[in-house]
Design a binder for these strands. Sequence first.
DNA 1: CTTGACCCTGGTACCAGCTCCAGGGTTTAG
DNA 2: CTAAACCCTGGAGCTGGTACCAGGGTCAAG
Lengths: 150, 150
Amino acid sequence: MLTIGKIARATGVTIDAVRYYERERLLAPARKSRAGYRLYGADTVRRLKFIRHAQQCGFSLAEIRELLELRTRERSCCKDVRSVAIAKRAQLDARIEALQELAQALDRLIEACDDDAKPLDDCPILGALEGAFQGESRPRAAPAANRARS
Amino acid sequence: MLTIGKIARATGVTIDAVRYYERERLLAPARKSRAGYRLYGADTVRRLKFIRHAQQCGFSLAEIRELLELRTRERSCCKDVRSVAIAKRAQLDARIEALQELAQALDRLIEACDDDAKPLDDCPILGALEGAFQGESRPRAAPAANRARS
DNA sequence: CTTGACCCTGGTACCAGCTCCAGGGTTTAG
DNA sequence: CTAAACCCTGGAGCTGGTACCAGGGTCAAG
């Protein structure tokens, strides 16, 4: 039986985070000692490691909760887990692609600015950022201004 | 002279965001009409477009403020701007690489789970997430538990 | 003159994922 | 016995970038 401090050190999660996970229903409410101290067993160590690893794999706490619930649901099988992972994988790909586009846009800007110490007025980077330039995608889907005139 | 609603529509930024940028010193305090209405000129339109484009390039508002300050500082030159862009580019690369590692880790998990509807107890994904697995990097740099015993 | 669109300020709420604090009680080492 | 180290609850604060609200003033059209 581990107290919260010990399980925290054992799993590399802070004490506050453990309590937070309990509040957020990623951990079942812990058994308590007479004094009200939380007591944990090996199962919670495993669960916390699961959470940590899944976070490192890019899952949000909400997604992790979903995985954990899948695990305790009778009727679900491995395939369900797999499909969650695949969906996450696709999300990740989209995110990577978006970042790569950003990187390319930045590259174009950097390239345009061959480093011969121009005055700022001629800086092609600032100029490009100022005017409408290559991308100009995402017109922000009908800004709707404010709550006014909706 | 544009009122805030007009400049918002002209630049694709919400009214609230324009006011927020003013508070956060990305825009100089606007000139006001007798009634206290903010009035903007073409320079602010350009500045807002700059902000929007820079955001699309992955710059945070703090970084954008830095760029804008560079621009109004006498002694700075194009090279300074360029080096900010290059630093951002490097950051972006690191982020992309990290995500690609995640994607690979997920791929390994998905691959391990060849979809023949195993019961959950045998699910290799859940198993891998639970135990110490391939990566196990980043032991979270001395967790320090809580403020206690520091 | 009235309606409705627009603007103001100052404040609160939201997202995630914690972190930290006050003000207590408990356990353990010396 | 005492002091340090640990634990509790409940709540606030943080990050970034807004969104939204109340309660008011202003402006233009009909």
